[in-house]
């Protein structure tokens, strides 16, 4: 309405001070016209990333030291409260790793675990996030669901194993169900927490700009809760792996947790460590994926 009228206003009456202040910033961006050489660019990059490089270097050294200590403890079969007599050495684990990556069965274990995580975790996110958002916005839904959630939440997912086996017709379904349960509550609780922290002034600001209930939900509550939703997803992913491995060890036939447990029964000590490392790497990978997704979805929070 009146904004087009605004558009036609002349710019000459801006206060000089304001223009000077505004003008100074773009001026700072302008660089000398000769492009800098590779050497200076490299130097600049090094200066900017010095802290990161340092951390990476120290990280590599500390991992190497860990391997060395592991190697020494196992080659000398140290017994000092804990017994390293049967613990496989890093080299033995490396050998069985080389063997395993050529073994389709090992890859199948890994793929199956990943599939269970994918299905269970995705379901938890698809149910947990919207439910948390709705509970955070509508009091009645909160009042109905919250008590049930509070009673069920403290039960560890592993305690559900017998019940899950009774509930679901196949083993596969009950394992996915356990994984779902493990990640569901952290996701729900964090989403709710995010909703409760939404700054009411932002809601007011949106209202004064003509936003109605639905737009406020989409444009304010949801994006404002995203950081906590992603915290929930990260925690949920961790718990999903914990629950999955436990369920696989107890009732599975396949999967990396089953592989690790089976290695123990079959006295394949190197495979135990291999299974553990594989679980660690998978867990790390999946939480990196979530972090990456978070940075994509929340560009305003990067750097």
């Amino acid at each position: 309405m009146s904004s087009p009228a605004l558009v036609r206003q002349p710019e000459d009456s801006m206060p000089a001070t304001a223009l000077a202040e505004a003008g100074s910033a773009p001026a700072a961006i302008i660089r000398p016209s000769t492009p800098p050489s590779f050497a200076t660019l490299g130097l600049r990059w090094y200066r900017l990333n010095r802290a990161g490089l340092r951390a990476a270097a120290i990280g590599v050294i500390s991992l190497l030291a860990f391997l060395l200590v592991w190697h020494l403890l196992t080659t000398y079969r140290v017994v000092f409260f804990v017994r390293f007599t049967n613990v496989p050495s890093p080299l033995a684990v490396y050998d069985s790793f080389i063997k395993a990556i050529h073994d389709p069965k090992f890859l199948m274990h890994i793929l199956l675990s990943c599939r269970r995580i994918f299905i269970g975790f995705s379901l938890a996110a698809i149910v947990g996030v919207p439910l948390g958002l709705i509970m955070g916005r509508f009091k009645l839904v909160h009042e109905v669901i919250f008590p049930v959630a509070e009673v069920l939440r403290p039960i560890p997912a592993i305690a559900w194993v017998p019940m899950a086996i009774m509930l679901w017709p196949t083993n596969e379904q009950s394992i996915v169900y356990i994984t779902f349960l493990g990640s569901f509550f952290p996701i729900l609780v964090n989403t709710l927490h995010g909703m409760s922290l939404v700054d009411p002034v932002l809601v007011r600001a949106a209202q004064c700009l003509g936003a109605r209930e639905r737009s406020i939900f989409r444009e304010v509550y949801f994006p404002a809760s995203l950081p906590h939703i992603f915290t929930g997803l990260t925690v949920g992913m961790g718990v999903a792996w914990v629950s999955l491995i436990a369920a696989e060890m107890i009732s599975g036939q396949y999967g990396i947790g089953y592989f690790t447990w089976e290695a123990y029964s079959l006295v394949q000590y190197a495979d135990i460590a291999l299974g553990m490392i594989a679980i660690g790497v998978l867990g790390l990978g999946s939480s990196l994926l979530i972090r990456g997704a978070g940075q994509l979805v929340m560009p305003w929070r990067s750097t």
Binding site: D199, V201, L202, R204, A205, A206, E219, V220, P223, A224, L226, M298, W300
Partner: peptide, 9 residues
């Protein structure tokens, strides 16, 4: 508003 209240996202 005093607290700026811009949408950070």
């Amino acid at each position: 508003f005093q607290q700026y209240s811009l949408f950070p996202w």
